[in-house]
Design a protein around this nucleic acid. Structure first.
Lengths: 229, 229
DNA sequence: GCAATAGTGTCTTTAAGACATTATCTT
DNA sequence: AAGATAATGTCTTAAAGACACTATTGC
C-alpha cells in the first residue's frame, strides 16, 4: 500500500431503535456543525485507526447517545459509499442498527445541539442530513423483516416479559394487529423462542400473565409471518 | 474533515459463485505479490476516490475475473473491518457476492498468478489469504439462505430454463434432494417466480420440459424452505 | 414395447387463522 | 357479580410432503 493512498474516510452510522409508548422510535441528533448544521441526523462518527467497526459503533453509542453496550443488540446492516453522499469528501459509512428495550432519553453529547427520540410516524416532513433517510429506511426494513424469521423481537423487551408484551412488539413494529390466542400458541410452541418462568407479572386488571425470558435460539422455524404484507 | 485524516483504506472483496457441473463453485485468484503471495484469495481491490462501491466491485470483476456486469447478480453482503485482517494496514473491506450462470473460465488478470473455479467441497484443506475464509463462509451462507425467500436461484441459470434445472440449482446449493413433483407445483404456482414460455427444451431422453424465464418478482411468498436444516 | 424425464393428482400431516371457551385476576 | 386480560380448545383452510399416476419423448 502506497503512501499516496486514496483519501477515503470510513464512518459508522447508527439506527438506534426502541419502542416508546408503543411506537417504533429512532434516536436522532441535531447537528451543531456544518455540513447540515441544525438538521437531524443519525448518530455517527469516523472510525479511529486500529478500531474495529463494532467498537466504533459502541463508542458512538456511548458518546452521542449515552448508551452502554449492554443495553442494545447491535447488528451491521449495509455500507453506503456513493461519492457525494457527504459534502466533506468521499466517506464510506457502515450502517448499524441497534435495538434496545425502552431506552432512556439521551444526554446531549459532543458536537450535538440536541438529541431525542422520534417516533417514525412523526418523521414524515423532517428532512434528515446526508443520505440518512435512506439509511434509516433500509435499517427499519431490515429490523421489520428480521422479526419474521429470528428471535430479534425480544431485544425490544426487558429480560423478563409476558407473551402480550412480545405480541405488542410485533404489532408496534409491523403496524398490524395479531390474534392474541394464535400468537400465544405460536410463540410458546416455537422451539428456542421463549423460556418459561415460574413467576407471573403483576396483574393489570385481568388474569396475571406468565413471565418468560428469551430462549436460546436465534432463528424462528417456521417463521412468524406478517400475513398480507 | 482534517488533513491528518485516519489512514484507513477501503476495499471490496468478491465472492463470485456459479454452478460448474452441478457443484457450487467460487472464483479464486492466486496472489502474485506479498502479502500472502502464492495463496488463493477472493478477487478484490482498493476503492478509487470518487468511485461507488458497486462500481469498484464491477471493476474488480472485469479486471480479475474478466466478467462483464451483465453476467452476474451483484449484492452487498457485509463489511469486514477488524484491524489486523490485512498486514498492510487498517483495511475495511466491503464484501459482495456475485452470482452468475455457468460463468466462463477466468483469464489471468493483473497481479494474479493464476485464477480458477473451485468447487466449495474441494476447498477444505486450502488456507485462503487474509480473512477470506470467513468472508467466503458468510457470503455462501447468505446465498444459501436467500434462495429460500427470494427468486435468486434464477441468477444461476441462463435466461430460459426448465423447472428441472431450477430444482437442480436448489439441490446443488443446498446439498439436498427435493421431490420433483412437489417442487414443480411449488415453483410454478408461486406468483412472480416463473414466466411460462410456449416453447420446450430439446428432450434429453424423456418428455421435453417446458421452458420458463424469470418472473418479475423478487420475493418468494411463502418461502421455499429447506426442510430439516 | 421399455426406459427416462416431465408433469399432475391424491392423500396425509402440519400449521395458520377465525373464533369460542375457560381461567384468574381487580373492582 | 361484572369487566378485563390470559390462556386453551375447536373448526376450517392452506400448504407441504409422500408418493402414485399420467404424458411425451428416444431407443
Amino acid at each position: 500500500m502506497s503512501a499516496d493512498a486514496p483519501e477515503i474516510h470510513v464512518a459508522v452510522d447508527l439506527t438506534v431503535l426502541t419502542l416508546r409508548d408503543g411506537a417504533l422510535s429512532v434516536l436522532l441528533i441535531q447537528r451543531e456543525d456544518e455540513p447540515h448544521r441544525g438538521k437531524w441526523a443519525l448518530p455517527g462518527g469516523f472510525i479511529i485507526p486500529g478500531e474495529d467497526l463494532e467498537e466504533a459503533a459502541y463508542r458512538v453509542l456511548a458518546d452521542e447517545a449515552s448508551l452502554g453496550s449492554g443495553a442494545v443488540h447491535l447488528e451491521q446492516v449495509r455500507t453506503f459509499g456513493t461519492p457525494g453522499r457527504d459534502p466533506r469528501g468521499h466517506v464510506v459509512s457502515v450502517a448499524f442498527m441497534a435495538l434496545g428495550a425502552d431506552l432512556p432519553d439521551p444526554q446531549r453529547g459532543d458536537d450535538v445541539a440536541d438529541a431525542r427520540w422520534w417516533a417514525l410516524a412523526d418523521l414524515d416532513g423532517v428532512g434528515l442530513a446526508f443520505d440518512h433517510a435512506a439509511v434509516l429506511a433500509v435499517s427499519v426494513d431490515r429490523a421489520r423483516s428480521k422479526l419474521e424469521y429470528t428471535t430479534l423481537a425480544v431485544t425490544f423487551l426487558p429480560e423478563e416479559f409476558t407473551v402480550s408484551q412480545l405480541r405488542g412488539v410485533y404489532e408496534s413494529v409491523w403496524g398490524t394487529t395479531l390474534d392474541a390466542g394464535n400468537f400465544h400458541r405460536k410463540a410458546t410452541r416455537t422451539e428456542g423462542f421463549l423460556e418459561e418462568l415460574d413467576r407471573h407479572a403483576a396483574p393489570t386488571g385481568g388474569r396475571p400473565a406468565r413471565l418468560y425470558r428469551a430462549g436460546g435460539g436465534d432463528s424462528l422455524m417456521p417463521p412468524l409471518l406478517r400475513s398480507g404484507d
